[in-house]
Amino acid sequence: MALEDLHHNFLTGRLEDMVRWARRASVWPATFGLACCAIEMMAAGAADYDLARYGMEVFRNSPRQADLMIVAGRVSQKMAPVLRQVYDQMMEPKWVISMGVCASSGGMFNNYAIVQGVDQIVPVDVYAPGCPPSPETLMHAILTLHEQIRTGEVLRRRGGATPPAAGSGGWTPEVPVAVRLGTPT
């Protein structure tokens, strides 16, 4: 088929770019509110901040339909297996934002009850600082994630898809592939 037979304009491009573009513009977060940060996450989705601008207002109640888990709040030892289960239920490709210092590092609660950083349980893509992060910070984290999706690999396999057996001393941290919030690309 020769080009002069075409009656329409066309563009060429790489399929990967389109896949990235599509993914970037439709990241659906799972509602995974834990503590204080969940309120700010809801505030980010509500009138004043309006996450819908980024194609993200569709908070999915089922992890099966979600692409992004925003770990909003402190993760207790009792919650950790549940969190991992929710993460495992999500379909690839999936991303994780660790929202707030408690989720990122345990924060001020350096004690027996709190997991010192959710990256010990699930691989984290973006850490959002703050206690709690204001909705602006969350949006910055989301935009950082968008940038990461836009420039990242289309096909990505997480290392160690199966969690280690129970009783073997907890979850082993996976190799972090995270960027710091505000890191220039």
Binding site: Q77, K78, G106, N110, N111, Y112, A113, R180
Partner: peptide, 29 residues
């Protein structure tokens, strides 16, 4: 009621340590 079922010990006893994990900044860029 608050701790997982298989937890050992009673955290608010005085002979139960806070469980502080030392914070390491080595890995930070």
């Amino acid at each position: 009621i608050l701790m997982p079922e298989d937890w050992e010990g009673h955290p608010l006893r005085k002979d139960y340590a806070v469980g502080r994990v030392p914070v390491q900044f080595k890995e930070a860029p």
